[in-house]
Amino acid sequence: MQRTALRRVAATAVTLVALGAGALATAGTASAAGKNGGLESGEFGLYYNSDQGGAVWDLFVEDPNFWGERFPGPGNGTYELVNDNTASYNNRDSNRWWVYTDAGAGGYEGSLPAGYIGNASATFKNQISSAYYYKGR
């Protein structure tokens, strides 16, 4: 009976270690996504040019302040500042994203539903300074 209990404890420990390693591997992959210049499923992309042209800045998580961030490329706008320098979007995330004309969810607020692809309106074109996958304010 004691042997059976030890086997169960050992089997449970092995299972927990395997699950923990799997969770870490998944977390590592997820945190590596975004801001790499390639718009992947589950990301929100802001483009340097209209009609999803030029370099893309892809977000996997919110960014409350674009100051100092640069388009990684490739394409027109590579290495240009992202802050107040985006003209179109592609929301490949399953969540709605909100964009703001000021850092910290300040200024004008725009809402982009999951799957949205389009150009920024006159209010937002080259004016966006923060973005959230939840309502920022």
Rank of each mutant, 00 (worst) to 15 (best):
M1D: 10
A5Q: 13
A5F: 11
L6W: 14
R7I: 15
R8A: 15
V9M: 14
A10Y: 00
A11L: 14
T15I: 03
T15L: 15
T15V: 13
V17W: 01
V17L: 13
V17Y: 00
V17Q: 03
G20V: 04
A21K: 04
L24H: 06
A27K: 11
A27R: 13
A27Q: 14
G28L: 12
T29E: 11
A30F: 12
A30P: 00
A30G: 02
A32V: 01
A32L: 04
G34I: 13
K35G: 00
K35V: 14
G38Q: 15
E40I: 06
F44A: 09
G45M: 07
Y47T: 02
Y47S: 03
Y48D: 07
N49F: 02
N49H: 10
S50G: 06
D51V: 07
G53D: 02
G54C: 09
A55T: 08
V56M: 01
V56H: 01
V56S: 02
L59P: 03
L59A: 06
E62Y: 00
D63E: 12
N65M: 00
F66C: 07
F66I: 09
W67K: 12
W67C: 06
E69H: 15
E69Y: 15
R70Y: 08
F71T: 05
F71H: 08
P74I: 10
N76E: 15
T78I: 14
T78F: 00
T78Y: 09
T78M: 12
Y79M: 13
E80G: 02
L81G: 05
D84F: 12
T86L: 03
A87M: 09
S88V: 06
Y89S: 10
Y89N: 03
N90Q: 08
N90C: 08
N91S: 05
D93N: 11
N95I: 00
N95H: 08
R96A: 12
V99L: 13
V99I: 15
Y100E: 03
D102V: 02
G104D: 12
G106S: 05
G107R: 07
Y108C: 00
G110N: 11
S111M: 07
L112V: 06
P113D: 09
A114E: 01
Y116P: 00
Y116T: 11
G118M: 04
N119I: 09
S121F: 01
S121I: 05
A122R: 07
T123K: 11
K125N: 15
Q127P: 03
I128D: 02
A131K: 09
Y132H: 06
K135H: 09
R137S: 08
